[in-house]
Structures are given as structure tokens and as C-alpha cells.
């Protein structure tokens, strides 16, 4: 029998506001927490997503309503707010999809080296943010 290890100081119950901001996450850590945040965001906005699907696909009249909601707004929400929300959803979907494909690739090929974890995480962030910027520029009529 070996000697039991000496008792070390144990730090539990990290404080979300005091401790978390001082953590410096590696790129893979950012991909991981953003995977969660993007998933939760799409969950919370699910009724809005179904509403968009309903309006865009149901009839010519509802499609016109869908377009005017994006351009002129609907109810108390101005058009730019609807488009900004849609852009947040576009980012969330892109990030969740690309980070998910990264997961699947790592599972299938056992690519779990530290270097691949870092480079694929940077690629995930660059691709999702880059595509969001491109699609956002289109959504707000910049080209």
C-alpha cells in the first residue's frame, strides 16, 4: 500500500462573476462554450424560427408579410431588430454546425492531438464568424 496523497487545497464553487473573467480560454475552449451558447440561443428562439418558417412557406401573402417584417418591422419590433435577431441565429447555426462537424470528424478519425484541437478550433471560429459577416452584409443590403 502506498501512502495516501497529501491533502491538497481544494477549490470548488468558482464564482461566475469573480473567477470566470480571469480565465483565459484556449481556442478549443471558446468553440466548446460557444457550442453550448449557440445551442441554447437557438432553443430559446425556436418559436421565432418556426414563425419564420410558417410565414415564409405558407402562402404568397404570408411570404410578403415575412419580407415586410424583415424590411419594415412587425408590431413593436423594427425591421433592423428582426434582421439582427436573424443574424444572431445565422451565427448560432453556423457555429453549431461547424463545431459539430469538428466533433464528428474527431470521433471518426481519432484526431485528438493538441495541435489538431487548436488548429481546427481556430478554423471553426474563423469560418463561422467569416460566413456570418458575409451573410450579414447580404442581409443588411451591403451588396
Amino acid at each position: 500500500m502506498t501512502e495516501p496523497a497529501k491533502t491538497r487545497p481544494v477549490f470548488r464553487n468558482i464564482h461566475a462573476l469573480q473567477d470566470l473573467p480571469s480565465y483565459r480560454l484556449p481556442a478549443a475552449g471558446w468553440v466548446s462554450i460557444l457550442h453550448r451558447i449557440s445551442g441554447a440561443l437557438m432553443f430559446l428562439l425556436l418559436p421565432f424560427i418556426v414563425w419564420l418558417f410558417d410565414k415564409s412557406v405558407s402562402s404568397e401573402i404570408s411570404f410578403a408579410k415575412f419580407k415586410s417584417a424583415l424590411n419594415l418591422g412587425i408590431g413593436m419590433y423594427p425591421g433592423w431588430f428582426i434582421r439582427l435577431t436573424l443574424l444572431a441565429l445565422i451565427w448560432a447555426y453556423l457555429h453549431h454546425l461547424i463545431a459539430g462537424l469538428r466533433h464528428l470528424y474527431m470521433d471518426a478519425t481519432h484526431s485528438v492531438s493538441r495541435e489538431f484541437g487548436r488548429s481546427s478550433a481556430v478554423a471553426t471560429l474563423a469560418l463561422s464568424v467569416g460566413l456570418t459577416v458575409v451573410l450579414g452584409a447580404k442581409l443588411f443590403g451591403l451588396y
Partner: peptide
């Protein structure tokens, strides 16, 4: 409740196309 409500709505939209 949130998920099943949204699912029901989406299926209704889909099936009346």
C-alpha cells in the same frame, strides 16, 4: 413543453403546404 409546442406548430405548417 417548449419543444413539443414548437414541434406541433412546425408539423402543422409542413402538412398544410
Amino acid at each position: 413543453v417548449w419543444l413539443l409546442s414548437c414541434l406541433g406548430w412546425a408539423v402543422q405548417v409542413l402538412w398544410r403546404l
